[in-house]
Design a protein around this nucleic acid. Structure first.
Length: 217
DNA sequence: CACCAGGGTGGTT
DNA sequence: AACCACCATGGT
């Protein structure tokens, strides 16, 4: 069994506060979550700055903008045609269908379902938006976390994201720690230790036992 | 030159 | 349900 609380403490002790999300505006967080998909934050941030300079970093402006202009703005973030189309789709939903003030009042489960219905927003992005934009207690399951858990359990078989989310949520349910956790998992994943097939240098393996399972859902 | 980065979608088996 | 190709730029 992995003690996710202890794992969090170990990660925090090793890497310190990560100060996520590096944006204040709510829509900027949503746009950033889409732009950063399969790309570095550096390039996503540059795309956000370009959108901002064109006055397009708001749902109403982005909803009515020329798609070709949006494509030019977000080109550096990669997959620029998809991202421009999806970004505008999200903007149009927020501007004409359902604004933040309405979404804010929804229960977390309903809000998650609403986000997942949008084109370009899958499980990871939806949970990131829930956590960082709406400050709901969501567990963001990414490839780094899957890999980390796989290694701690010394297991080759994959663990379902649903079980993983439930297991983490059972021990960490407050927004501040869930916020740090996702950032810390990525910080660790980017290190040499996090990238190694077997992690021998770090002390993270102290928080699990070989052959045992992740607590059940 | 190859490989990776804070994924998601659509199609195939 | 698992797997696959595809999307595309920028950095190492």
């Amino acid at each position: 069994v992995i003690r996710f609380g202890k794992l969090y403490d170990a990660l925090f002790a090793a890497y310190g506060p990560q100060h996520w999300w590096p944006a204040d505006d709510t829509f900027e967080i949503v746009a950033g979550a889409v732009l950063v998909q399969r790309t570095t934050w550096r390039n996503a941030e540059a795309a956000l700055a370009t959108l901002q300079s064109r006055g397009l970093l708001a749902p109403e402006a982005l909803a009515t903008a020329d798609t070709a202009v949006i494509e030019a703005c977000v080109r550096r973030a990669g997959f620029y045609r998809s991202k421009a189309r999806r970004l505008q789709g999200v903007a149009r939903f927020l501007a004409t269908r359902c604004g933040f003030d309405t979404l804010e009042k929804l229960p977390t489960a309903d809000l998650r379902h609403t986000l997942l219905a949008l084109d370009g927003i899958g499980p990871e992005t939806a949970d990131a938006i829930l956590l960082y934009a709406f400050e709901r207690p969501a567990v963001v399951v990414d490839e780094y976390l899957r890999r980390l858990v796989r290694r701690l359990l010394k297991r080759d078989a994959a663990i379902s994201d649903t079980v993983l989310r439930t297991s983490v949520a059972a021990e960490i349910d407050d927004v501040p720690r869930l916020n740090e956790l996702h950032a810390l998992v990525i910080a660790h994943g980017k290190t040499v230790c996090g990238r190694r097939p077997r992690c021998g240098e770090c002390r993270l393996s102290d928080h699990c036992r070989t052959g045992s399972k992740v607590s059940k859902a």
